[in-house]
Computed example of a mutant assay.
Amino acid sequence: MIDRFRMKWLETQEEIKRLGRYQRPFDGDLPHRLLILGVDHRIPQSQVYPFHYYRRALKQAGVEVREANVARYGETGESAPKGASAVAIQSTMDLTEAQFDRLLDRVRRANPKARITYMDWFAPTDLRFAEMMAERVDLYLSKHLLRDRAAYGHPTLGDTTLMDFYGRHFGLDQEAQCFAVPDGFWEKLRLGPSFVTAPFMLPVFDRGAFPEGARPIDLHARIAVAGTPWYQKMRQGCADAVDALGGVNKLVGTGIRHDRFLEELRRSKICFSPFGYGEVCWRDFEAVMCGAVLLKQDMGHVETDPDLFVPGETYVPLRWDLSDFDEVVRGLLADPARRERIARAAFQKMQDYARSSRFVEQMTPLWQVTA
C-alpha cells in the first residue's frame, strides 16, 4: 500500500503537470493529438487522470495528450493547444445546447479536423445528454451504463433509476422525466472505467499489494443522510439497517478525514457502500483498495468496465429494500474464508486492469475510427 504522504506527493506532482506540461503546445511528432477539456473537480478528474498516468503507453500507441480547463476554454479559447486531431470534452450537469454550441465553435475553429468525444462523468446511469450530443459529437463516453439498453428512453419518476425506484418505494411525489435517445446514438456510445482510475487509487492498484493485517472492525458503515427527499429516505433506511444490527463491532457517523477513513477501511472486514446519487460510488473502489469486502445493494442492472460488481465473486449484493441485511452481514462475519476470497478477487481484478493495456484499448476510438 502506498502511504498517504507518498500519494499526496504524487497528486501534487500531477497537479503541477496539469498546470504546466499538459497545457503546452503539441509536439506534433505523433499521429494522434488528444486535447482533453476537463472539469476541475475530483470526480470528473478521476476520468481524466488515466490519460496522464498512462501517457507512456499512449505515446507508444501514437497519442500525445494535453489538457485544459473547459470553463476557461469556453470563456476565451486561450491557454489550450491547437491543432488537436481529437478533443474530449467534459461539462457540468447544467450544460445547455447554446453553451455547448459556443464551446464547439471554439473547439472546431482551433481544431478543424478533430474527432469530438463527450465524456459523461456524472453519478447517475441515465443518458440525459444523449439527444443534445447525438448530432454534435463523434463519440459519447460514459463511466457506467444500464445493462439493459432498452431501459433508456422511457419515462421515470424523477430523473434517475434510483429516484424512480425509491420515489415509488417511499410514495414520494416526483415529476416524470424522459431523456430521449435518438436513432444512431448507440453507435457512438462507449463505456470507460469508473473510479478505479482516480489519482489516489490507480497507482495503488498498479504498484501496490493487497493490504494484509488485522481487521478488528466488523462493519464499516459511515453513512451521510442529508440530501434531496428520495436520497435522504434511502440513506436513512441504510443507516437504520446498520443501527438495528446488534452484537457487531461497527463504525458509523460522518465527518472523518479521508486518510483516516481509508485507514479504517484497512482495518475493516466488511464495508457497506450504499447507493449515492448514482449507483457507483467512490467507496466501492476504496473498500476494494483497502481489502474490505464490498457490501452493496444489488448492482446487476449496471455495467462497468472493469466489472467490479460480480455477485459473490468481487462483491456481496443486498436486496434494495435491505430486508436481508442482517442475514447477509452475519453470514459474512461467520465465514472468514469467503471474505478473504471475495476481497482478494476484487483487488486482483482491479489490479489486473491497472497493470494491463486495457485503458488504452478502451480509449482508442476517441482518436481512431475502429471497425
Rank of each mutant, 00 (worst) to 15 (best):
Y49E: 08
G62T: 04
R260F: 11
Y353V: 06
E64A: 12
C290N: 14
W320T: 11
E263P: 00
T76G: 02
P274C: 02
D218P: 07
R115Y: 06
S323E: 12
R355Y: 01
V280L: 08
E131Y: 00
K59Q: 14
P199S: 13
K17D: 13
P124M: 08
P25T: 03
E67R: 06
G158E: 00
V316D: 11
L139W: 00
F200C: 01
V204E: 14
L127W: 01
E286W: 09
V225Y: 08
R21T: 12
A84P: 07
L322E: 05
Q60M: 07
T304E: 10
M93T: 08
L103T: 04
H154N: 07
L172S: 01
F165D: 01
A371I: 01
W121Y: 11
A241V: 11
Q47N: 10
E135T: 14
C271N: 15
P124E: 12
I2G: 02
A337G: 11
Y53R: 13
K349R: 15
I116E: 03
Y54R: 12
K296D: 10
R168E: 08
L19W: 13
F205Y: 15
S142E: 04
R190P: 03
D305R: 11
Q90I: 00
R319Y: 08
A345F: 00
G278Q: 06
A61V: 05
D138Y: 04
R266E: 14
A354D: 07
Y22F: 15
R341N: 03
E14L: 10
K250Y: 02
E97D: 12
K143D: 06
D94T: 07
F51S: 05
V293N: 05
W121L: 11
Q177M: 13
T156N: 02
V293H: 09
D148I: 03
A151P: 06
A337T: 05
Q174G: 05
W282C: 06
Y118V: 01
E212H: 05
V87A: 12
D335C: 06
Q236I: 01
A244M: 05
P216R: 07
K296E: 13
R207H: 13
Q348N: 08
L318F: 08
D105N: 13
V316R: 09
L35M: 07
R115N: 09
E286C: 05
H169E: 11
L295W: 10
G227V: 10
Q236E: 12
K59C: 05
